[in-house]
């Protein structure tokens, strides 16, 4: 990867556009009038109290959750009930989950090559070569033949990141990637993510790691009760929060 090209030359092209999006679980209104535009190459951190709809919002971006009103356009494709569109979006959007969701019956290498082989129709040998390259990038090539159950949590999450990268996604979604990890392992996962951010990947990351937000985010979004309350660049967001709820939230998580 030529990291010297990491100038944000691609900024300006719209990667994700969410317009007046609403979602209900039954009669419970979880997401209310979400409007969000993400430029390609942008790194966005989403934070907020639990139950505020952060995860639900990013899960709408690859249609793991269905929205009922409004539009979501990802990489120029609108998400509707059309399976073709959904599959097209999912091919270009990688996702990393809180609980890794690695496939326990497949080896690390097989986890990484499965989607390239079956979705992208990459020949097996080539898919394995690509997988090994990404496993080296997340610094665990020696674990390739092991099963996920034999790795530590931090290693599993790095495998999950490598697995997503093997599909060469244009956008990466991170859904609380470090929340299920021991403190010792959070750093190794964050380092991998920071490296990825520095290479210019478009990222939306739901996380409580404010240090990470300060280091890599272009924009921090604060959500509460299903709404986007405030969004700003990290400097402004942390030093000069506008909304009362944001101030309260920040005072609670930063004063520990």
């Amino acid at each position: 990867m030529d990291t010297d090209q990491r100038v944000e030359h691609e900024l300006g092209e719209v990667a994700i556009k969410i317009r007046e999006m609403h979602k209900w679980y039954g009669s419970f209104h979880v997401l209310k009038d979400i409007n969000l535009e993400v430029q390609s190459g942008e790194r966005i951190v989403v934070c907020g109290p639990s139950g505020s709809g952060k995860s639900t919002m990013i899960r709408c971006i690859n249609r793991l959750e269905e929205h009922q009103k409004g539009d979501i356009i990802v990489d120029g494709v609108e998400l509707t009930n059309d399976l073709k569109n959904i599959e097209a979006v999912r091919r270009e959007v990688g996702m990393v989950f809180q609980h890794f969701n690695l496939f326990p019956h497949l080896t690390v290498l097989e986890n990484c090559t499965l989607a390239p082989i079956w979705v992208r129709k990459t020949p097996k040998a080539e898919a394995e070569e690509i997988a090994m390259r990404y496993l080296e990038r997340v610094k665990i090539p020696e674990q390739a033949r092991k099963f996920p159950g034999q790795l530590s949590g931090g290693q599993q999450q790095r495998v999950a990141i490598a697995r997503s990268l093997c599909m060469s996604p244009k956008i990466m979604l991170f859904d609380e990637p470090t929340s299920a990890l021991d403190p010792e392992m959070i750093k190794e996962v964050l380092d991998t993510m920071i490296e990825l951010a520095q290479e210019g990947m478009t990222m939306i990351c739901v996380t409580h790691e404010m240090g990470f937000a300060k280091t890599v985010a272009n924009r921090v979004i604060f959500m509460d009760a299903g709404q986007i309350i405030e969004q700003n660049n990290p400097d402004e967001f942390f030093n000069n929060p506008q909304n009362e709820r944001t101030q309260l939230f920040l005072s609670q998580i930063l004063n520990h």
């Binding site: 793991l64 969701n101 079956w118």
Partner: peptide, 26 residues
Amino acid sequence: PNGQIEAADAMGLKYWPAMRLIVLPQ
């Protein structure tokens, strides 16, 4: 676990490959 199906969906696997490769073996 539901997360297995979500992971398969998130990768863009269609229904039958997801069932055959991920869900049914487990």
